[in-house]
Amino acid sequence: TEVDLHLGDITIKLKDVSEEIVKRAKELFKNGWSAEFVKKWIEEAVK
Protein backbone atom coordinates (compact mmCIF):
# COMPACT_ATOMS: atom_id res chain seq x y z
CA THR A 1 0.00 0.00 0.00
CA GLU A 2 1.08 3.56 -0.64
CA VAL A 3 0.45 6.39 1.76
CA ASP A 4 1.03 10.11 1.31
CA LEU A 5 2.18 11.58 4.59
CA HIS A 6 1.67 15.33 4.68
CA LEU A 7 4.08 17.11 6.99
CA GLY A 8 3.54 20.83 6.71
CA ASP A 9 4.40 21.76 3.14
CA ILE A 10 6.26 18.51 2.52
CA THR A 11 4.61 15.31 1.33
CA ILE A 12 6.42 12.04 1.86
CA LYS A 13 5.36 9.08 -0.26
CA LEU A 14 5.44 5.93 1.81
CA LYS A 15 5.36 2.40 0.48
CA ASP A 16 4.63 -0.69 2.56
CA VAL A 17 4.63 1.23 5.83
CA SER A 18 2.48 0.06 8.71
CA GLU A 19 -0.32 2.22 10.06
CA GLU A 20 1.55 2.29 13.36
CA ILE A 21 4.61 3.93 11.78
CA VAL A 22 2.48 6.51 9.98
CA LYS A 23 0.72 7.36 13.24
CA ARG A 24 4.00 7.67 15.11
CA ALA A 25 5.53 9.80 12.35
CA LYS A 26 2.62 12.24 12.56
CA GLU A 27 3.08 12.46 16.33
CA LEU A 28 6.80 13.15 15.97
CA PHE A 29 6.06 15.93 13.50
CA LYS A 30 3.42 17.41 15.80
CA ASN A 31 5.96 17.31 18.63
CA GLY A 32 8.25 19.60 16.68
CA TRP A 33 10.39 17.23 14.63
CA SER A 34 11.27 18.61 11.21
CA ALA A 35 9.89 16.79 8.18
CA GLU A 36 13.48 15.81 7.28
CA PHE A 37 13.98 14.14 10.64
CA VAL A 38 10.64 12.37 10.45
CA LYS A 39 11.54 11.08 6.99
CA LYS A 40 14.86 9.74 8.27
CA TRP A 41 13.11 8.15 11.25
CA ILE A 42 10.65 6.39 8.93
CA GLU A 43 13.47 5.11 6.73
CA GLU A 44 15.16 3.65 9.81
CA ALA A 45 11.91 2.23 11.15
CA VAL A 46 11.11 0.28 7.98
CA LYS A 47 14.56 -1.31 7.57
Rank of each mutant, 00 (worst) to 15 (best):
K15L: 10
R24P: 00
K13Y: 05
I42M: 05
A35V: 14
L5P: 02
D9K: 10
H6G: 04
E43P: 01
V3K: 08
K40D: 12
F37W: 14
F37A: 15
T11K: 07
L7V: 05
K30S: 09
T11Q: 08
K15Q: 10
E19H: 11
V38G: 00
L5W: 03
L7Q: 01
E20M: 09
V38W: 01
I12Y: 01
K47R: 15
G32N: 03
E44F: 11
N31V: 04
K26Q: 12
K26T: 10
K23H: 11
I42K: 00
G32D: 02
R24Q: 15
D9Y: 04
E27S: 05
I10G: 03
I21K: 01
H6R: 11
A25P: 00
A25M: 02
K40W: 15
D16T: 05
L5G: 02
A45F: 11
N31G: 10
V3W: 05
G32Q: 01
I42Q: 00
F29M: 06
I42N: 00
A45D: 02
K39D: 06
I10Q: 08
D4S: 13
L5N: 03
T11G: 06
L5E: 03
L7G: 02
S34C: 07
L14Y: 05
E44V: 09
A35E: 08
V3F: 14
D9T: 10
N31Y: 07
T1A: 10
A45N: 08
G32V: 01
H6Q: 12
W33T: 05
I21V: 09
E43C: 06
F29L: 12
I42P: 00
E44T: 10
E44S: 09
K13E: 05
L14D: 02
W41H: 00
S18I: 09
E2K: 08
A45E: 12
W33R: 09
F37H: 14
S34D: 15
T1V: 15
I10N: 04
L14T: 04
K47P: 03
E2V: 13
K13W: 04
L14F: 06
I21A: 02
V17G: 03
A45Y: 12
T11N: 06
A45V: 12
V46W: 06
V22Q: 07
E2F: 13
A35N: 04
E27R: 04
G32T: 01
K13R: 14
L7K: 01
T1F: 10
D9P: 10
R24E: 11
K30C: 07
